[in-house]
Design a protein around this nucleic acid. Sequence first.
DNA 1: CACATATGCTATACTGTGTATCATAAAGTG
DNA 2: CACTTTATGATACACAGTATAGCATATGTG
Lengths: 184, 184
Amino acid sequence: MQKVDRRILRTERLLMDALVALALEKSYDAITIRDITERADVSYSTFFRHYSEIDDLLAEVLKTVVDDLTRLIKHSKSRESEGLLIFQHVAANAAFFRVMFSSQGTSRVMQKLRDDTAAVVLESARFPADGLVPPEIAANHMVAAILALIRWWLDHDMPYSVERMEQIYSRLIIDATQQAVTPE
Amino acid sequence: MQKVDRRILRTERLLMDALVALALEKSYDAITIRDITERADVSYSTFFRHYSEIDDLLAEVLKTVVDDLTRLIKHSKSRESEGLLIFQHVAANAAFFRVMFSSQGTSRVMQKLRDDTAAVVLESARFPADGLVPPEIAANHMVAAILALIRWWLDHDMPYSVERMEQIYSRLIIDATQQAVTPE
DNA sequence: CACATATGCTATACTGTGTATCATAAAGTG
DNA sequence: CACTTTATGATACACAGTATAGCATATGTG
């Protein structure tokens, strides 16, 4: 564990916060590096000393939030409350997740996130291989569906409670997929 | 029905074809207007006489293919072959659909397409309103799932037949959603 | 054929990215 | 605390891509 200069941590935190704040105000595509550095009160040239493009910074931001969620789920005992944890975490970090979806223009970042998550689901879910629906497709479906559900919830300003969303998630995604992959 | 100058049709067709060809060669984000006009063998300034930005051109391209599919489905008699029509159409226009997904950076275009389709599904499916899953969420889920399924199929170079995909689609998306929205 | 107009071409302004350089401030080290 | 390291600020600059304007030419329409 090497020690990191406090100035680096400070600058990167300022840049990350600035990106999130800006993404909530205008379209992700419209955000410039100058916007970010001005908002963060950091020199323009300093940006390039940490990231080579805005997408790099976005990836960092998303990684932080997703890692938090992953750790949260991993450390929880009861497995059935997984959906609850997800929606609680989304609600608590709504700003970050809004950025995540509004920035979907950035296909690379989101695509990697999707594929990585699908890989995790694939190996942890252990879908039967002899069914009509191939395990890979089932995993891809689950990840796409949960992301779509979260997006809908945020886009519509969270009109249903976390508990209700958990029920919908269980039925529409978990149970439905499980049933679809199970051979008759 | 107003008559359109053949020169206009010619130019727009050249630009659309050029965009599709380029999108298959490199990242959508990396495509410049100059790339497109050079490939189309059209003057740079002419581009702006038809579209104000590349996304406009992309929207035109996607609209063409999606309208074709919509018309196809509308004109078919048997309703159960809907999935078959979809995957046949995707296979026949694979290049266009690949562009559609690779360009997902362009959130606006894809987002509008998704939301519009979800609205159509919502009013044609007539999901029960008293179930656990709200109809709006069910419609959103179906559209996101079918798009994710098509994307997976293309990303993996169509490893399963159109018929197999139709079966997967019916079970994983149609039947599963229908069952999830139905109150006990 | 006469007219309308879409296109080609050139010049130009503007915005945003990315790099280089140097002085300064701030952090780490013994 | 003195010394060294390095992260930052500031500025200048090269470059790519967007967007508009003006005029000559080619092509389609009636």
